[in-house]
Every structure is written in structure tokens, then in C-alpha cells.
């Protein structure tokens, strides 16, 4: 796809999912519009090419997620996001009263653990789904989530173990 003519087509196909993802993470339509613009600026700067591996949507999903996490560096907002998003999961079932604490932890963890945590806890993706999305092995996903859980347990020992 060309960087110029292709931009129309890429936008037509993927703007909805990019905007939806940004709206999901940011919770604000105006910010989601700005984030959408930023994503497609990256697409244009990259020559209009959207990698098809694993899928174009997956690549844009990752870019959008990273950009939105950057926008959520504001700790208060991060905490709010995670407090509301840290849902009960088959593998991790934090008690309701610990959600705010979990959010505080996430605000402190390194970036490479943050996106894994978002995909796992917020999106409910499995290890096998997260691995190709991040371009890492399943084991790396597992290790990062373990590191996340260790950090959480260290900072908030009352939080229930993750596995």
C-alpha cells in the first residue's frame, strides 16, 4: 500500500477499531480522536504500510494501546482506569477492595509489564493471544505477568496470588 493513496484505504478499514480502542482506554471522545490522529500519523510516517503479521488490526491495536498508555501516564488517571478495568478473571481474582491497590501497582510497573497487564487483565487475552500481538514468545508473556504479579505481591502483600 502506498503511503499516500493507501492512507485513505487504511483509514477506511481500520479507523473504527483504532478509535474504539482509544476510546476504550482513554474514556474520552476528544482524546480518542487525538490518539486516532496520532496513530495514523505514525502509519503515514511509516510509508502507509501496516504490517500484516499477525494482522493489520493487531499491529494497529498495539500501536494504539502504546500511545494511549503514554497518554495515561498521569498516575491518577491510570489508577482510575485500572481500578475500573481490573475485572475478575479465571486466573486472577483480586478481591474488589484490592482493585484500587492493583491500579496503584500498575502505575508503578515498567512499561513492558504495563502493556502485558493491560492485554491480560483489561482485554482478557490469553498468553497465546498476547504473544503474537507483542511479537514475543508465550514464555516471555508468562514471565512478564509473573514479574507483574511478584511486584504486586511485594507492594501489596494482602493482594491475592495471581495463579
Amino acid at each position: 500500500m502506498s503511503g499516500w493513496h493507501g492512507l485513505d484505504r487504511v483509514y477506511e478499514l481500520h479507523s473504527r477499531s483504532v478509535y474504539r480502542r482509544a476510546l476504550q482506554l482513554l474514556g474520552d471522545a476528544e482524546e480518542a480522536r487525538d490518539a486516532t490522529q496520532e496513530v495514523f500519523v505514525r502509519v503515514m510516517r511509516a510509508g502507509g504500510a501496516v504490517p500484516a503479521d499477525p494482522t493489520p488490526t493487531a499491529w494497529l491495536y498495539r500501536v494504539t494501546t502504546n500511545l494511549c498508555l503514554n497518554r495515561l501516564r498521569d498516575r491518577t488517571r491510570q489508577q482510575g482506569l485500572l481500578a475500573s478495568k481490573y475485572t475478575v478473571d479465571a486466573e486472577v481474582r483480586p478481591a474488589g477492595e484490592t482493585r484500587a491497590a492493583v491500579a496503584q501497582v500498575l502505575a508503578r510497573v515498567p512499561e513492558d509489564l504495563q502493556d502485558v497487564a493491560i492485554y491480560f487483565f483489561v482485554d482478557g487475552l490469553t498468553y497465546d493471544e498476547i504473544a503474537p500481538l507483542l511479537g514475543v514468545s508465550r514464555r516471555t508473556v508468562s514471565n512478564r505477568l509473573s514479574a507483574f504479579r511478584d511486584l504486586m505481591a511485594r507492594l501489596f502483600p494482602e493482594t491475592r496470588s495471581a495463579s
Partner: peptide, 11 residues
């Protein structure tokens, strides 16, 4: 999503 007509010039 934001309409392409307004977004693409901004991009």
C-alpha cells in the same frame, strides 16, 4: 470514528 474527510488532512 472521526470522518476521513476531516481527519486525513489533519494527519
Amino acid at each position: 470514528p472521526p470522518p476521513a474527510a476531516t481527519m486525513l488532512p489533519r494527519v
